[in-house]
C-alpha cells in the first residue's frame, strides 16, 4: 500500500443537536467514530489519511456545548465555545485574564475563530514522528523514535515522559491547571468532573491518549472556580514564530497576594512534559514569601529538578527555569 496524503478519505457525517444524541451515536459507532470539534487537529489526521474513521460526529450543532455561563461564582465554559469567544468574553478578560491571554496565544485568528476551548485542551500531540504516521508507542507500536540517540527531539519532553517523549501542545491547558479548572466529561454513566491536572494523563498511564476522555466520551464543559478570580496572573509562551506555533515552553501562574505576601499559588508549565506540569513544590516554596529575586531564583532551580534531557532539548531546562523565575518575579 503506497502512502498518499492530502485527500480526506470518505466518511459519513453526523451532526447531532444534543449531547445525548452525540453520545448515542458514539456508542452506536463505537470503534469507528471520530468526534469533531473545531476540527483543526482532526483535519490534519484525516488529510494525512492516518486516522480514517468511518463516521464523524460533528459537535458544532450542539447548542448546550456553546457559550459561557456564570456558575457558583465561577465560569462554566461549554467545550465548543470558540477560543475567540473565550478571549473576548468580558468576565474572562476581567477575572481570568490568564485564560484569555493563553487562548490568545493559540495559533492564528482564523484558528481561534474556529477552534474550541475543548478541542484545544483535548488535542493530540504534535510529535512529528507520531504525526508522520510512524508506528510509535502512541500509535500502538513498540518504539519511541523521538527518544532515539540522534532523533530530532528539540520540541520533546524533559519530564513526565514514559517511553513516549511527546509533549502536550495545548496553550490553554497550563492556564486551566493554574486556575484549578474542572473538566466535565460525559460518557455512558453520569457526568464526571476531573481536576484539570488529573484530566491530562501521561504516557505512563495511557500512551495512546493525552486526556482522560475515552473513546465514546465527550468533554462537555470546563468550569473555572471563583477562588482564583482576579488573582495575580502571569503567562508567557516562548515559540519559534509569533503566530501558528506551539510552545517551546510556556508558563501559567496564578498568585493570591495579600499585603505583598503570596498566600497561595498555582504554577503550571507547558511544553516540557506530556501534560501541563503543575509545580506544587514551587508553589509551596513561594507561598508565604513576597516573591522577589532570590525566591524566584530558587523557584526556578527547583522547578527543573529531575528533568531528563534528550539529544536536542537541553535548552528547555534554562528556558523553563527562567520562565518560572519570571512568573515568581512578577509578583513583586
Amino acid at each position: 500500500m503506497a502512502i498518499i496524503r492530502d485527500m480526506i478519505p470518505a466518511f459519513e457525517l453526523f451532526q447531532p443537536n444534543t449531547v445525548d444524541d452525540a453520545l448515542a451515536l458514539l456508542d452506536e459507532h463505537r470503534g469507528e467514530a471520530w468526534v469533531l470539534a473545531g476540527g483543526l487537529d482532526s483535519y490534519d489526521w484525516f488529510k494525512d489519511r492516518i486516522k480514517r474513521p468511518a463516521v464523524v460526529v460533528d459537535l458544532g450543532g450542539i447548542e448546550e456545548l456553546h457559550g459561557i455561563t456564570e456558575e457558583q461564582g465561577g465560569l462554566t465554559i461549554g467545550a465548543m465555545t470558540s477560543l475567540t469567544e473565550v478571549v473576548n468574553h468580558a468576565r474572562v478578560q476581567s477575572d481570568y485574564s490568564l485564560l484569555a491571554t493563553a487562548a490568545e496565544h493559540v495559533a492564528t485568528p482564523q484558528i481561534r475563530n474556529q477552534g474550541t476551548l475543548g478541542g484545544n485542551i483535548a488535542q493530540d500531540t504534535r510529535c512529528w514522528y507520531y504525526r508522520s504516521g510512524w508506528p510509535c508507542y502512541r500509535a500502538g507500536g513498540n518504539t519511541c523514535y523521538a527518544a532515539a540517540p540522534k532523533a530530532m527531539n528539540r520540541e520533546h519532553a524533559i519530564m513526565g515522559a514514559s517511553r513516549c517523549v511527546a509533549v502536550s501542545p495545548s496553550d490553554t491547558a497550563p492556564a486551566l491547571v493554574a486556575l484549578d479548572a474542572k473538566m466535565t466529561v460525559r460518557g455512558g454513566g453520569s457526568p464526571k468532573d476531573h481536576d484539570a491536572e488529573d484530566f491530562f494523563i501521561g504516557p505512563a498511564i495511557d500512551i495512546t491518549r493525552m486526556t482522560v476522555v475515552k473513546p465514546g466520551d465527550l468533554l462537555t464543559a470546563i468550569h473555572i472556580p471563583a477562588v482564583w478570580a482576579n488573582a495575580q496572573f502571569y503567562y508567557e509562551k516562548v515559540r519559534d514564530r509569533g503566530s501558528w506555533d506551539f510552545q517551546l515552553v510556556s508558563v501559567a501562574a496564578a498568585f493570591q497576594v495579600s499585603g505583598g505576601t503570596i498566600t497561595d499559588a498555582r504554577i503550571s508549565v507547558g511544553g516540557v512534559a506530556p501534560y501541563p506540569v503543575r509545580l506544587e513544590r514551587v508553589e509551596r516554596l513561594v507561598t508565604g514569601t513576597t516573591g522577589g529575586e532570590s525566591v524566584a531564583n530558587e523557584a526556578g532551580e527547583l522547578s527543573v529538578q529531575g528533568a531528563r534531557v534528550l539529544r536536542h532539548n537541553d535548552y528547555k531546562i534554562p528556558m523553563m527555569r527562567n520562565l518560572v523565575r519570571r512568573a515568581v518575579r512578577s509578583v513583586a
Binding site: M1, G133, G140, Y145
Partner: peptide, 15 residues
C-alpha cells in the same frame, strides 16, 4: 499479529 507501516511505509510485524 499486530502489523503496522514502518517509517518507510513498509509493512512490518510489531507484536
Amino acid at each position: 499479529w499486530r502489523r503496522a507501516l514502518d517509517p518507510w511505509g513498509q509493512d512490518v510485524l510489531i507484536g
